[in-house]
């Protein structure tokens, strides 16, 4: 359950585990991928050290294979520092990433930014060896979530609606929410929402946070949009018209010399067809009761779409 915590490169209680994973797996280089040359060399799809990244990487590889382009995965390279380096030096051809966090990694931007603005700034800020392909509508970002009962009672669909009731609510979120620009300060400046109480729960929107929401210990919580628990418990994700939370659309981050135009077309098609609901379903199959492998889940998703 702790692997999700490192998704955004943030440290938390799982940091030690993540750090040791980084040490063990972070040195993925050393193979002379650049020396192989030629168009027929296999594409290496890397991924970060959390499950969703590994699933999307498997989807990329499966889709490429489906289009008769040879591709293999190199899962769990590490945190962004590690896999961006691998893409830069060409030992990894492409990795899935998230638009907002990738931009923040290179540029000290803060929300509110629209997705268009993020995609405009991103290419300008990337190192010259790498590029991003089309962003997918699929998105995994922080979002304020309430129970169906709360939403019905106050007729809530967006954070704007919530603003009037913030002062009677306890907000549950990871501790950094108290200080980061998208957290309490952003809610106050963008929506005039000041929760009565802040309840720091250090599991990155995981089971403890969901539980606190369900038993009404907190009335609104910060949970990632691709968390299967949102669907399972019929929770309501509040819209964010002011873009308080930085957009986090899934996109391929690639080495500029690693992909043929055909390969680019395939990955762009994957991005076009992948939705947030697909991501939730894929996450649920792999992290839920079924415990499907990322490869199997990816294979089934690719089989439902046509990339050949």
């Amino acid at each position: 359950m702790f692997t999700r915590i490192t998704r955004r490169g943030m440290l938390s209680a799982g940091a030690l585990a993540a750090a040791s994973t980084l040490v063990l797996t972070g040195c993925g280089g050393g193979e002379d991928a650049l020396d192989e040359g030629g168009d027929d060399r296999s594409i290496v799809v890397g991924s970060a050290d959390f499950t969703e990244s590994q699933i999307i990487a498997a989807v990329y590889a499966e889709a490429l294979n489906d289009a008769d382009i040879s591709a293999e995965t190199r899962p769990a390279i590490g945190a962004r520092e590690a896999y961006v380096g691998a893409v830069k030096d060409g030992s990894v051809s492409v990795v899935p990433d998230y638009s907002g966090n990738l931009l923040q990694y290179y540029d000290e931007v803060t929300a509110p930014l629209t997705e268009d603005e993020v995609m405009e700034y991103l290419p300008q800020n990337l190192p010259e060896e790498v590029e991003v392909l089309d962003a997918s509508p699929a998105e995994n970002k922080d979002a304020l979530v309430v129970t169906r009962d709360t939403a019905d009672e106050h007729e809530l669909t967006s954070i704007e609606d919530l603003a009037a009731f913030c002062s009677e609510m306890t907000l549950g979120a990871p501790p950094e929410f108290q200080e980061r620009s998208y957290g309490l300060p952003g809610l106050k400046s963008n929506y005039g929402c000041e929760p009565a109480e802040f309840s720091p729960i250090n599991d990155a929107g995981g089971p403890l946070t969901v539980q606190a929401l369900l038993d009404d210990t907190v009335q609104v919580a910060d949970i990632f949009t691709t968390t299967p628990a949102i669907k399972q418990n019929d929770l309501v994700v509040l819209e964010d018209p002011e873009n308080n939370f930085l957009p986090q659309h899934v996109l391929p981050l690639a080495n500029k010399d690693a992909l043929s135009q055909d390969a680019r077309d395939v990955l762009n098609k994957v991005s076009a067809e992948l939705t947030t609901d697909d991501l939730i379903a894929l996450n649920d199959r792999v992290s839920g009761d079924e415990k499907a492998s990322p490869e199997q889940a990816a294979k089934d998703w690719v089989a439902d779409h046509d990339f050949s």
């Binding site: 440290l11 940091a15 200080e179 980061r180 720091p200 250090n202």
Partner: peptide, 11 residues
């Protein structure tokens, strides 16, 4: 522990 956990969360 609040200082520890909160400090870690924002590095």
């Amino acid at each position: 522990g609040r200082f520890l956990i909160d400090g870690l969360a924002v590095r």
